[in-house]
């Protein structure tokens, strides 16, 4: 804030105070602009390259005998990243379908499915995984870092990433059929 009073009758605001006021306003507007920009961004967009992130898997899940997945190690493969949570009813609609499709592609070794469990409690999450007999690598989104990076708007959301690590397609909300999933995966497999 500026000063309330002035000592001598006709003096204006000292220069330093003026600079301070404008600077303060600029910083405030800057922060709001950045915040607004963030709020308006939506999820990461198709065409963006997904940088590296690490996912620690739930006990009992491994990927190539390791308990942690580095996204960068998956270059050259088609990656399907599914955000879910055990408290999310719509997620249950697609869980069995995702697993079924995963079992079709798993032998080929060209496609990797990853489940990321968003803001969930471990016991219930494990119950969910057991209930739908999910075998593809799954792990919790520790400190919500990965979901914040993808800027997900809710669960379920599924991200399809091609062999070059470029995001190609986003499914917001549950899949209605297995064919829908297959279509997207096949499209990416046939890319080259």
């Amino acid at each position: 804030m500026t000063e309330m009073t002035q000592d001598s009758p006709k003096r204006g605001v000292p220069l330093w105070a003026q600079i301070l006021v404008w600077l303060g306003l600029l910083v405030l507007l800057g922060i709001v602009a950045l915040g607004l920009n963030r709020a308006q961004q939506g999820t990461v967009q198709p065409g963006e390259i997904i940088p590296d992130f690490k996912l620690t898997l739930f006990d009992g899940y491994t990927y190539q005998e390791k308990t942690e997945i580095s996204f960068s190690e998956l270059r050259g493969k088609v990656v399907v990243i599914n955000f879910w949570a055990s408290w999310c009813k719509p997620c249950e609609q697609e869980a069995a379908g995702l697993e079924a499709v995963w079992r079709e592609y798993q032998p080929g070794g060209e496609v990797v499915f990853i489940g990321i469990d968003y803001v969930d409690t471990e016991p219930e999450a494990r119950g969910y995984l057991t209930k739908f007999d999910i075998t593809f690598p799954n792990g919790p989104d520790l400190a919500t870092k990965i979901s914040q990076f993808f800027r997900i708007k809710g669960v379920p959301e599924t991200y399809f990433i091609d062999r070059n690590g470029v995001l190609q397609y986003i499914q917001v909300g549950p899949f209605t059929s297995e064919t829908q999933i297959r279509q997207q995966v096949d499209a990416l497999l046939n890319q080259q």
Binding site: A85, S86, W87, V119, D120, T121, E122, P123, E124
Partner: peptide, 13 residues
């Protein structure tokens, strides 16, 4: 919400 109910169950656990 359901998520929060689960959290409370976890705290109990």
């Amino acid at each position: 919400t359901q998520a929060c109910a689960q959290w409370r169950d976890l705290i109990r656990l």
